[in-house]
Design a protein around this nucleic acid. Structure first.
Lengths: 181, 181
DNA sequence: CCTCTTGCTGAACGGTTGTATGGTAAGGCT
DNA sequence: AGCCTTACCATACAACCGTTCAGCAAGAGG
C-alpha cells in the first residue's frame, strides 16, 4: 500500500490541529457542537485523540480558550491613545470566527470553574494592557466592556452593527474623554 | 388516598413553571444543563411535559428567551435622560440570575436561526426605546453595547465589576455626551 | 532492510440525550 | 356520585455522549 492510513504528527502540531478544529466547531454550532465526534471529524482524526492529547474534552476546551485569548493579548507594543480603537477592533479578533467563539466560550466560563480561573488570569493581563494606554484602571474596564458589547451586537445582529459602525460608536463615546483615539 | 399523585394546572400556568425552571437550569449550569431531565426535575414534573406544552425543547428555549427579554422591555414609560443609567441597570435585569441566563442565551442565539430571528425582533424594540431617550439611534446602539459589556464583566469577573462600579463606569462615558444620566 | 518507539486507531462500554406513546388519574361539571 | 375531558405520567426507544484500552502501524534511527 503506497498510501498510509494516517499520518503521525509531533504532539504539539497535532494539538494545534485539534484546537483549531475545536474553534471551528464552536464557531459553527456553539458549545452544543463542541463534541468529540464533531471535532475529530473536523480534524480528520479518530475519536481517541482528544483524550490522548488533552486528557479529555475539558482539557481541549481550556486550550481553545487560551488560543482565543492569544490574538487579544498580542500586538500591544507601541500602541498609544491614537490607534487604541483600531487595536481593539483589529481584524484578527473582530472578524469571524473570533467573536462567535467568544460568544460560545462566555456561556461556559461563567459555569466552568477551571475555565473561569483561567479567564480571570488572562482578563487581568488584558485589562492591564488597556489601562497602560488609557491611564486609568476603571476606565480600562469600561473601555473593554464597550468593546465586548459591540462585539456582541455584531454577532447577534450583524445587519445592524458592522465593524465600521462599531468603531464609530466606540470613538463617539471615547473622544470626549480621551481625545482622538 | 388523600394525597393525589400530581396536580393539574391550567396550561399557561404549567408553561410558566417550566419556563422558570428552564431559566434556573440555564443560570446554574449554562446551556449544557438545559436538558429535559434537569428542567422537569427542577419543575417537579415528568419528562414528557416539555414536549406536551412546547412541542419540544427548542420551543421551551424560545419561550425562555422571550421571558428573559420581558423585564428588559418593561418600565420605560416616563424614563428620561436622568434615570437612564438606573433603568439600564435595574435590579430586575442586572442581579442574578438575569445576566447568567443571558450569557447562556447569547451563545445559542448566534447559532439557532429561530432564536436569532426572535432576538432581532426584540432587540429592535429595545433599541427603539433607548433611542427615544438618548435621541439618536447610533448612540443607542453604543449605549446598549456598553451596558451589555458591563453585564458581561460582572458575570465573568464579579470581584472586579460590581453593579455600582458598572453604573459609575457607564456614567463616566456618557456624561460628556448626555450630561447627568 | 530491520527494529523500536510512540502517535494513533477503532471498537466497546455505560450513561445520557430528546421524542413518541399508551395508559392513568385529577378535578370540573352535571 | 358518577362521568368525561385532558393534563399528566412513565416507559420504551434509538441516537449520541465522553472515556477507556488493547493493539496496530507510521516513520525515524540504525
Amino acid at each position: 500500500m503506497a498510501e498510509p492510513r494516517f499520518r503521525r504528527y509531533a504532539p504539539e502540531v497535532r494539538a494545534g490541529m485539534l484546537v483549531e478544529a475545536g474553534m471551528a466547531c464552536l464557531a459553527r454550532g456553539g458549545i452544543g457542537a463542541f463534541t468529540v465526534d464533531n471535532i475529530c471529524a473536523e480534524a480528520g482524526a479518530s475519536r481517541g485523540l482528544i483524550a490522548h492529547h488533552f486528557g479529555g474534552k475539558d482539557g481541549l476546551l481550556v486550550a481553545v480558550h487560551a488560543a482565543a485569548y492569544a490574538p487579544v493579548l498580542e500586538g500591544w507594543e507601541g500602541v498609544g491613545l491614537p490607534g487604541l480603537v483600531d487595536r481593539l477592533f483589529a481584524p484578527a479578533q473582530f472578524t469571524e470566527p473570533g467573536p462567535r467563539v467568544w460568544l460560545a466560550l462566555w456561556g461556559e466560563i461563567a459555569v466552568n470553574p477551571v475555565l473561569k480561573a483561567e479567564h480571570e488570569r488572562h482578563y487581568t493581563a488584558y485589562r492591564t494592557k488597556v489601562a497602560a494606554v488609557v491611564g486609568d484602571d476603571v476606565l480600562a474596564g469600561a473601555v473593554i466592556a464597550l468593546a465586548d458589547g459591540l462585539w456582541l451586537e455584531q454577532c447577534l445582529a450583524p445587519d445592524v452593527m458592522s465593524p465600521d459602525r462599531a468603531k464609530a460608536a466606540c470613538r463617539m463615546l471615547l473622544r470626549p474623554i480621551l481625545g482622538d483615539v
